[in-house]
Design a protein around this nucleic acid. Structure first.
Lengths: 340, 340
DNA sequence: ACGGTCGCTGTAAACGTTTCCACTCGACGA
DNA sequence: TCGTCGAGTGGAAACGTTTACAGCGACCGT
């Protein structure tokens, strides 16, 4: 009982051969008597078949692992869906939500080298040196969705969220907004810093006024954090010469929170303050007012990643690829009002 | 080249032993020269390690498969998250989105018997006879989230969506609404028919007026379908004696669509018409007006299912369990207005 | 110069299952 | 009665890896 019983134990307990035991449980040719005996023995010793051994013998599908930080995030869900669809019959997909702890991600890569899967698609929020190291010396093919600064020979697909922020700023300036506040997400993540840099560049390009009070960071990527951050932003900037007329948010959820906070102060969106999100989640279209947002093309990125991995399966020696997809701005009523 | 190259081919191509090849790629003790040779040979023949064989040798984790019809559905995402969390280190989780085709589900169960996983959690929209058959004679443990009419010895966890509908009707009647329209989802699914039955029972219980025009079905579970269905419902009932004062929707998304349609007709929610959804998705709380909905406890169901599966792993011979969780009504502004 | 140690390599045995093959045994047709 | 056939069984060889074990040379301290 101490160790996991194998088919050997079952066969022994039933007093039959290994082959017969196997056939009695799954195979076709076995006498009813034999089936009865073996089934009974199996139940008695608490036998459960080992999927791995079976798969080895039967030659199962390839197994690719998709690792994300939080499976609840709609972006990842979109990717997941696209990957799943793209892989199709080629491989079975296994998703692994690493939680917030980054060390868990490198743990996962190690696991992978231990047979967890034949390939990996990973979309890490931040790339630590140890993760980079783990990726470097793993044997199985990996595709990274996101920025991978050093160039190990690893396929990757990438969207520039700095230019994404640039796009919304351009749009806001285009409709006459100049006093633009920004609510960023936590800065220690990869997209976080990219967005910060993107805003700085755009602000400089347009020679926008820019004070410290106009740039704050939310504690989180949630609606609640958005509300709280917007409150802070509004009280801080109200002491300045002229009030802000737009808020660029790091996230659709934060944007929704910000809109809520604005309304509670009696400010109209977009007449008084225009608000933009990022991600173009389903919520963006459904919220009222519908949210101007910029799509990071999660679905497309997922699809490309899956295709890259498939290609590498087909030819492991092919040169490493690095593809870039363009963010697309989706203009809705939270910036241009009902008019358009 | 025709067949997938194994470590044997690599060893042969490099002119070294199998053991050396293995060590050169993963192990610790190998001369630099050896590593070079083997790496080169591996690249030359296009070698990729076989995860299954590795896992067998290394004794990898248990692998449980979570099969759903559409991974995009927020309910399933919640379940997924809960399962993942509950399983923790015990097992690795693999998700498989079977798409809409039900035969693909039974296909999956078959696959499972072929080593795709050590356990299965499945939440089927409809239970076909062939699926039931496949479930009956599979060797690996299965937990079903949903209704499983026949009683094969299979663990299951279940929420009564008929009483869920009953709850919202009770609530609506409680706030004085009596002319209640209903927009159901496609009726050929398991939850679909349950909701229909639930409404019929509740309507009879309260002796509500009920005409054919007041009960329609949306073509889909989407916002768009909700809009379209609501239009139909409104034009059909406007010919009747008194207009409807509430709509029970099969889904949060449909409810959102319905609200949109109502507004476009100049009807106020909830003053003129109260609207309710089902599922209590994240959207329900965020939408304006916030949506009264009833939570089907997806997260809880997922957690319980995972726990059941773990228990069966621990003791395969334990008696089969069947647990029921209660739906909970979440009252928001789409029925009671801003007042409360 | 010699035993000991160390670093590397090859042979072979695992991991838990399915299945090919040979074999027995009863039944059945001639 | 004898050959044939079929179903059911057991022994053993796979599936593709990792790794204990032993062998073998080189190197080092004495």
């Amino acid at each position: 009982m101490g160790t996991k019983p194998t088919l050997h134990e079952v066969a022994a307990a039933a007093g039959v051969s290994l082959a017969s035991a196997s056939r009695a449980l799954t195979g076709q040719s076995a006498s009813p008597e034999m089936v009865r005996k073996v089934r009974a023995a199996a139940k008695r010793v608490g036998y459960l078949p080992d999927a791995t051994a079976r798969a080895l013998r039967l030659g199962g599908r390839r197994q690719v692992v998709f690792a994300v930080d939080d499976i609840g995030n709609p972006n990842y869900v979109q990717m997941l869906r696209a990957i799943e669809e793209e892989l199709g019959e080629t491989a079975r997909l296994s998703v692994s939500s690493t939680g917030r702890r980054p060390d868990q991600t490198v743990e996962l890569v190690r696991m992978l080298s231990m047979g967890a899967g034949d390939g990996l698609i990973i979309s890490p929020l931040r790339v630590t040196p140890s993760l980079r190291q783990a990726l470097a010396d793993t044997v199985v093919p990996v595709v990274v969705i996101g920025t991978l600064h050093s160039d190990l020979g690893i396929d990757s697909v990438f969207v520039d969220s700095a230019v994404a922020v640039g796009m919304v700023v351009d749009h806001l300036v285009g409709i006459g907004r100049t006093r633009i506040g920004v609510i960023n997400g936590p800065g220690n993540t990869n997209p976080g810093s990219a967005r910060r840099a993107g805003f700085a560049a755009a602000a400089q390009r347009h020679a926008l006024p820019r004070t410290d009070a106009m740039q704050i960071t939310a504690t989180d990527f949630t609606v609640g954090a958005g509300v709280e951050a917007a409150e802070r932003l509004l009280t801080a900037t109200s002491e300045e010469a002229s009030p802000i007329d737009a808020i660029v948010c790091a996230n659709d959820l934060i944007a929704i929170g910000a809109i809520d906070a604005l309304r509670r102060r009696g400010l109209r969106v977009p007449e008084d303050v225009a608000v933009t999100g990022i991600d173009d989640t389903e919520l963006a279209a459904l919220f009222s007012p519908p949210l101007t947002s910029v799509s990071l093309q999660s679905e497309r990125r997922g699809r490309i990643a899956a295709r890259m991995l498939s290609a590498r399966f087909a030819d492991p020696a092919r040169p490493t690829q690095r593809e870039t997809v363009d963010a697309t701005l989706v203009i809705r009523a939270s910036t241009i009002g009902e008019a358009a």
